[in-house]
């Protein structure tokens, strides 16, 4: 019996997210008297795989078949389910990111398991298995009980602290014996966002709304983001107007993020906007309207003109 965690890599490297997942799986394994097996798909060097041991994986299965590079959902789900069966996994953990969301439902059906997606904490009880997740786009939480022998969980970002341990893992090659007929996805083009802090990974996010007046006024926000190593975001009208790229749109119909610190410049705080950012640990609002609803969601605020406030903030950060 084991806890299986699917650890995605980015060009052969893991991210903090991967270690968060392994730490989470290790905490579950401890409660269930079990151990953690990580599954890695693609070419990852052994010393990178070994890093997973520092967070509690005692075994790493590496699947190096490069046909999986197309992320074919059907083929990949089949391989993950095969790994889960081989390991006798009682719990299978995924990240609640694009790939995790794509695979977890398919894997859960294959394993006849129960699925909870977007978990925000460790299970509050193991028998019955009850776990908390966000519902109503962040407006509430639900405690969900899984009534199946095998449990599949996708973990929301930034919901679990990294926990380092001194450990070693055995690395084992895994052959999923996949059939060519399983692969039906052909990738014609990949566009990677490079040189920027990815919004979903960012610990700090600097965001602008219609209060910024025009797409030409983003220099100050970019400077602040650069200084803080922050990701950039915007409200929906900003991306609709083409002031900023659609990839930066956050909210109910955009990305849902949960950084440690979210700066909202000239954003009114409409409920659909808050749906995407309300799980941030600290929200800071700068808005000239003291009645703006963003102040109800914010932890710190300045009533004032963004164009006066922003240069002061930049100076203060430079002086830190």
């Amino acid at each position: 019996m084991s806890i299986l965690v699917y650890t995605e890599n980015w060009d052969g490297k893991f991210k903090k997210l991967s270690f968060e997942l392994v730490s989470y799986a290790a905490a579950i394994a401890k409660e269930m008297d079990s151990s953690v097996t990580a599954l890695s798909v693609g070419e990852v060097a052994d010393d990178e795989l070994n890093k997973l041991a520092n967070y509690g994986a005692s075994k790493v299965l590496k699947l190096e078949d490069n046909r999986f590079g197309s992320l074919d959902n059907k083929a990949l789900s089949k391989a993950i389910a095969a790994a889960a069966n081989k390991e006798g996994a009682k719990v299978v953990v995924f990240a609640h990111d694009n790939l995790g969301k794509a695979l977890a439902p398919r894997v859960s059906v294959k394993l006849d398991a129960g699925l909870v997606s977007g978990a925000t904490a460790l299970p509050s009880s193991f028998d019955p298995f009850v776990i908390k997740k966000k519902v109503f786009t962040g407006k509430a939480f639900a405690n969900v009980q899984i009534n199946a022998d095998i449990k599949v969980v996708t973990l929301s970002q930034n919901s679990f602290e990294l926990a380092e341990t001194a450990g070693t893992a055995t690395i084992e090659a895994f052959d999923a014996a996949a059939d060519d007929a399983d692969f039906n996805t052909v990738v014609n083009e990949t566009n990677k966002i490079t040189g920027k802090v990815l919004l979903n990974d960012a610990e700090i996010v600097v965001s602008g709304g219609r209060g910024m007046k025009s797409g030409d006024n983003w220099g100050g926000l970019e400077e602040l983001a650069d200084l803080l190593g922050a990701g950039m975001a915007c409200s929906r009208p900003v991306s609709d107007e083409g002031w900023r790229s659609h990839t930066e749109h956050v909210g109910q119909t955009g990305k849902i993020i949960a950084p440690n610190l979210y700066f909202a410049f000239g954003i009114s705080g409409a409920i659909q906007h808050l749906g995407g950012v309300s799980s941030s640990k600290v929200i800071v609002a700068i808005n000239k309207d003291p009645e703006a609803p963003i102040f109800e969601a914010a932890d710190y605020g300045i009533v004032g003109d963004v164009f006066k406030v922003l240069p002061q903030l930049i100076d203060a950060v430079k002086a830190m």
């Binding site: 859960s108 908390k132 962040g138 939480f141 009980q145 899984i146």
Partner: peptide, 10 residues
């Protein structure tokens, strides 16, 4: 396969 035990408001 799952049941909602209860809800919490933030």
């Amino acid at each position: 396969k799952t049941s909602y035990v209860n809800y919490e408001l933030p």
